[in-house]
Design a protein around this nucleic acid. Structure first.
Lengths: 266, 266
DNA sequence: CGGCTATTTGAGAGAAATCAAGGATAGTGG
DNA sequence: CCACTATCCTTGATTTCTCTCAAATAGCCG
């Protein structure tokens, strides 16, 4: 089960957002837990990509005493829009989606966050989106005060944080271009190309893209409906650019062509 | 003349982006100029809202010695996407649009920046968008190195910069929701509502929104065509929510209703 | 195996884009 | 100052693409 929420894409969908919200809160009461009292940062697989990459071993030691590691089960939320923001989170493993709802249930995802990424976008002390686990995920919970303290005292951390914010701005900007001006086929091509970036390419230039999320998450990320996502993937398959062994696995067979579709960008 | 570029909205538009780009470069060669050697920061109307708000008079003195004030004529660009980034800019007056082009000329604006806003989004030392003056504008040119120096040394500036980046992230996130999921009527309502935020409201609850940009800028900002922008404004007019004295001036007559349309957000 | 959910596919409707033309506006030059 | 011209804006007719509605298929977990 990848999605708790049914797709509520359409501008005219009149589903009851209150019920939606209630269901989500119910989900939220179960099974998230702290998996360890401190955290073994020394062996953390995400450390090199995370906000703590720039810390010395000594600094890391002090830092780690203030953070907690949490397991978030698929579908559960870490925080919700409009909640008071007390923590940042670093994704250790798994994948998190940032979601925003309109009053009638329409949903827009603004990012998928994975290992090393920083979560906790807030403004005026309030979270700006729902952060939900796409699949089981492990995150580090960092009190905002602590992160602020370290960014004030450790220049390296300041630089890392700054870079991460700039990357996020850059990603959001490109996503706005995609949402505003790209066709469905270009949207899917862009999405798959981006996802394939950290993949290993076989000798015959193929790569498997693993989709941890369902079609409705992809649709809500790209500003489409699940049907259009499905049809567009089928179209790309028929064009011979990719294979679809299972719905959660896509093998890119013509990287160059897919990239050309994606990067109509100048 | 508000727009140099014709609208190139449609996914199927096959206009030649090369020509577009050339024309833009031509424009860029004329008439931008430095309007003063140093800058009279003490009397700057944008200072309280700008990045330099947190500086003491002494600090401001040193800071101002490193910056230049430039006049940018309507339609001209300050910098372009893919250019090496050497400067940040603070908008003193006028309005700047951030634009990105796709290969076939489709355009997406990601923000309008006005007095007090900071420009210069870059990643890996490269600007991420074209910054162009919507109308005649004055900007302060701040070498990136200088801004970095001051953010390192002056905590207040660090806080201001951080807040500005968070606001920008927040704006972009909300814009992504708009682009991905809102209807034309909601898009226009959101746009006008946001623009009316700094307006004075008359006794009978009316406010004039001045649109410095043309319909094609609005269309490219909201992910629509100029025709749809025009038709939608007419529709809102017919619904009795606003008046359109001139195409660049819109008087909101039913703020509450417009806001309700805009904030279908929960 | 059976029920549930996710995904795919088809048919039809609807909304926004495209194509086209007329009217308003602003800036230019006489 | 006014007429002229280029551009911008609005409106209408038509097309096209995506969404909606509906149903069948596939995949997963108990």
């Amino acid at each position: 089960m990848f999605d708790t929420l049914k797709a509520r894409n359409s501008p005219t969908a009149k589903c009851n957002a209150q019920i939606l919200r209630f269901e989500r809160q119910e989900k939220n009461t179960v099974s998230d837990r702290y998996i360890m009292p401190g955290s073994p940062c020394s062996s953390c697989s995400a450390r090199s990509k995370a906000i703590c990459a720039g810390l010395s071993d000594d600094e890391m030691d002090g830092f780690s005493r203030n953070i907690r590691t949490r397991l978030i089960k698929a579908g559960n939320s870490i925080y919700r829009e409009f909640e008071k923001a007390n923590y940042f989170y670093t994704v250790v493993s798994g994948e998190i989606r940032l979601a925003n709802l309109l009053g009638d249930g329409r949903r827009q995802l603004t990012a998928f966050k994975s290992a090393g990424d920083l979560l906790g976008e807030h403004n005026g002390g309030i979270y700006q989106s729902d952060a939900e686990a796409v699949c089981d995920a492990v995150v580090c919970q960092i009190p905002i005060k602590i992160l602020e303290k370290y960014t004030n005292e450790v220049p390296a951390m300041r630089v890392t944080l700054n870079t991460k914010m700039q990357n996020e701005l850059c990603d959001l900007r490109h996503h706005a271009i995609l949402l505003g001006r790209k066709t469905p086929i270009e949207k899917i091509a862009t999405f798959l190309t981006a996802r394939s970036e950290n993949c290993e390419w076989s000798d015959d230039d193929k790569a498997e893209v693993v989709l941890t999320m369902g079609r409705s998450d992809i649709a809500d990320f790209l500003g489409l409906t699940i049907e259009t996502v499905s049809r567009t993937i089928t179209k790309l398959k028929n064009m011979g650019l990719l294979l679809v062994p299972t719905s959660h696995s896509i093998v890119i067979t013509d990287q160059a062509c897919l990239k050309r579709l994606a990067e109509n960008e100048q």
